[in-house]
Design a protein around this nucleic acid. Structure first.
Lengths: 348, 348
DNA sequence: CTGAAAGCGCTTACAG
DNA sequence: CTGAAAGCGCTTACAG
C-alpha cells in the first residue's frame, strides 16, 4: 500500500512499531475506549467482547505504556530512593526492604546515591522530581547523619529510613535501646551478674542509645555495671582485642559477660579472651550488635548478636510512603522499630 | 473570576496546580513553541526574548515534566538495573558505578532485585518494560551465575555486568587471571620463590581463572608451584586458618609466599601463621583477593590484595548500555576489565 | 452496550 | 522571528 500516515518527527522506535491500544482495538473491532475498559476490567460490556479484546492483546503481546498512563493520571508509580552509602552494610538491607515492599504494589524505585557534594545531590533530587516521582525515601548509613540534600521544599511526600530527618518529618529507625535491653536481659537470664559494655566512638548516636539500654536493663535487674562507664573505643576488632586487656586487668573483679557495641568489637574481644585461656561463653559470655553474618557466624564460637531488622525497617518506610502518596493519614514523628536477638553459642 | 476551565477528571495534584510550560509562556507573553525553544536553547529568537522566558521559568520555578517529554520522544532516559544480590558485597560497587555513570548523563536507574523465583523476576522485568526503560543492565553476585529471568525476548538493549549472559551478549567481567598474575609477579619481584595458592570451592569459575593466572605467572617466572595443585577449600577464614597447617606440614619445603583466593582466606592464614611464630611478610608473604576493606585493612599486618575495580566495571557497563541505546555500534562479547594490585604490608 | 473526543505536558515541522 | 496545530499512548466523562 502507500506510505504510512505521517508520524511524529522523531520517527519510530528502532525495533519496529510498538503495539498500542489502538492496534488492540482494531484487531478486536472495538473502539479504544472499549479496549481500554476491557483490559482494565472497568466498564460494562458483553463478556465475549472483553474476552475477545484480551485475546487480541495477548496475541499482539500488547504492553501498556506506563508513561502515557502516568502523564494522564498524574501519578508515575515511581519513587526516588536517596542514599549516601554505597559500600556500607546498612543501607543495603534497607533498600532491599523498600524495593520489595513497593515493587509488589506496582511501584518502581529510582536508586540514586548522593555523595558528599550538596550541589550534585540537589541536582539528583531535581532529576527525580522532573521524572515525577510520587515520593522520596531518604536513607543513610548512620542513624544520626543527614543526607547532603535539602528536601524541605519538595512537593512530594518524603520518608526517612535509618537516617536523620528534620523536625516534624516521618521516619523509621531501629530501637537500639530496646536491642541493648534484649541483650542484657538475655545475659541476666543466663545467670551473668558482672556485665561490661565495650562500644564505639561517642560521636555516634547509637553508642548512647545502646549504652542507655544497657544501663536500664542492668538497673531493672538490680545489678550494678562492672564499670561505671562503658569502654569507649572505635568500631574495630583491634579495639575489641585491646578492650579485653582493660577489662581483665586492674583491681575490679573480671566480668562474666560483655555486651559489645558491634560485631567486630565482639570478634576482637573473643579472640583476646581465647588467647588468654578464657572460655566463651563458660567464663565470659559475649554478645555483639548488628548481626553482620560474615562476622557473627565466623566467630569462634558463633556470636549471639542483636539484629536491627533493617529489611523490615525498609519495608515499613516503603509502605508508609505509599500511604502518604495515596493520601492516607500518617502522623509525623520518628518510629522506632524493635530489634531482635539472634542467639548463638557465644552466650551459652 | 469564574471557575477554571474543565480539567481531566482525575483532578489536580494534591499540592496545588503544577506549573507547566503554558504558564511560563503566558508569563513571558510568548507562545509555548517559543517558550520551549527558549528554554532548550533551540530555535532562533531575540536574545531578550530568550532571557525573558528563562527569567519567567525561574520565577515560577518551572520544572519540565520528563514524563511528557518521554512520551513524545519515545525515550524515557531511564534504565533498569536487575540484581540478584541484596546483601553481598560485589553488586554494591557495580551498582554505584552504573548509577554514577548514568546519572551524570541524565539517565535514572530503576533498581530491582530479583530473587530466586523466575516468575517474580519476570514480572519485574515486565514492569520495567511497561515503564519504557531504554535498556537493562543485569548484574549478579557471581561471575558464573545467571539471573533467574529470561532477557532474550526483550526489545531493548541489555548489558551484563559481573554476571553471566547468553551467547552473543555484551558483558563486562573482571579479569581475574590478570589479577592473579599481578599478585604473583609482585611476589616474584619481592624475591619469593616458593609460592603456594590457597583458594575457594571448585564450582566457582573465579577459582579456575585465578588458579590459571597463578600458574601462568609462575611459569613466566620460571618457577614451579610449591604444590602441584592449589589448595581447595571454602571462602572462609576458618579454611585459611586450616590451610596453614597443610602448607607447613609434610616433607615439602614450606612456602615463602601464599596467594589466597580471597581476603578472608588470607586473614585466617595470617592468623594461623602468626600463631605458629612465623612473621608476615618476612617469613611468608601473603596476598589476598577482593580488597574488601573491612578485612584487608583490619588484618595484621594490613593485607596486600587484588582489587577488581568493580565500580569501574559498573561505569563501563552503564556507558556501554548508553551507546547501545543511542545507536552507537558496540560489538558483542564479554570484555574483561583489568584488576589492580593494592600493596599493603603483608607482602613486604 | 459502545464510540468520539478531550486532555495529561511536552516538542517540532510547518506556515506565516 | 514567532505561533497554531499535531501528536506521543493512554483513560474517562459524556453522548448516543
Amino acid at each position: 500500500m502507500d506510505d504510512r500516515a505521517p508520524r511524529a518527527a522523531t520517527g519510530r522506535a528502532k525495533r519496529g512499531a510498538r503495539v498500542t491500544i489502538h492496534d488492540v482495538a482494531k484487531a478486536s473491532s472495538v473502539s479504544v475506549t472499549t479496549a481500554s475498559q476491557a483490559l482494565s476490567g472497568q466498564g460494562r460490556m458483553a463478556l465475549a467482547t472483553r474476552e475477545r479484546v484480551k485475546a487480541a492483546a495477548k496475541a499482539l503481546s500488547f504492553r501498556p505504556n506506563a508513561i502515557a498512563r502516568a502523564l494522564l493520571k498524574q501519578r508515575s508509580f515511581t519513587i526516588g530512593l536517596l542514599t549516601n552509602d554505597t559500600y556500607g552494610r546498612f543501607t543495603l538491607p534497607v533498600m532491599a526492604g523498600i524495593s520489595e515492599a513497593l515493587v509488589d504494589r506496582g511501584v518502581s524505585v529510582f536508586l540514586c546515591s548522593v555523595e558528599r557534594d550538596p550541589v550534585i545531590g540537589q541536582s539528583h533530587v531535581d532529576a527525580m522530581l522532573e521524572k515525577q516521582v510520587d515520593g522520596i525515601i531518604a536513607s543513610g548509613k548512620r542513624l544520626d547523619s543527614r543526607l547532603p540534600v535539602d528536601l524541605s521544599g519538595v512537593d512530594v511526600p518524603v520518608v526517612y529510613a535509618y537516617c536523620e530527618g528534620p523536625e516534624g518529618s516521618v521516619g523509621f529507625v531501629s530501637d537500639d535501646g530496646q536491642g541493648a535491653r534484649l541483650a542484657v536481659a538475655h545475659l541476666v537470664d543466663r545467670g551473668c551478674r558482672r556485665i561490661a559494655h565495650v562500644t564505639g566512638p561517642e560521636d555516634f548516636a547509637v553508642v548512647h542509645r545502646r549504652a542507655e539500654g544497657f544501663a536500664a536493663a542492668l538497673a531493672a535487674a538490680g545489678l550494678a555495671p562492672v564499670r561505671a562507664e562503658p569502654l569507649i573505643g572505635d568500631w574495630s576488632e583491634a579495639w575489641g582485642f585491646a578492650a579485653a586487656g582493660a577489662l581483665l586487668e586492674g583491681p575490679a573483679a573480671p566480668p562474666d559477660a560483655v555486651f559489645c557495641g558491634n560485631d567486630q568489637i565482639a570478634r576482637g574481644l573473643i579472640d583476646a579472651l581465647t588467647l588468654r585461656g578464657l572460655r566463651v561463653p563458660q567464663d565470659v559470655a559475649v554478645i555483639g550488635f548488628d548481626n553482620w553474618e560474615i562476622f557473627a557466624a565466623a566467630t569462634r564460637p558463633p556470636l549471639t548478636t542483636v539484629d536491627m531488622n533493617l529489611k523490615d525497617l525498609g519495608r515499613h518506610a516503603g509502605l508508609t510512603l505509599l500511604d502518604l502518596v495515596e493520601g492516607r493519614p500518617v502522623s509525623p514523628g520518628i518510629r522506632k522499630l524493635p530489634c531482635r536477638l539472634v542467639v548463638r553459642a557465644s552466650s551459652g
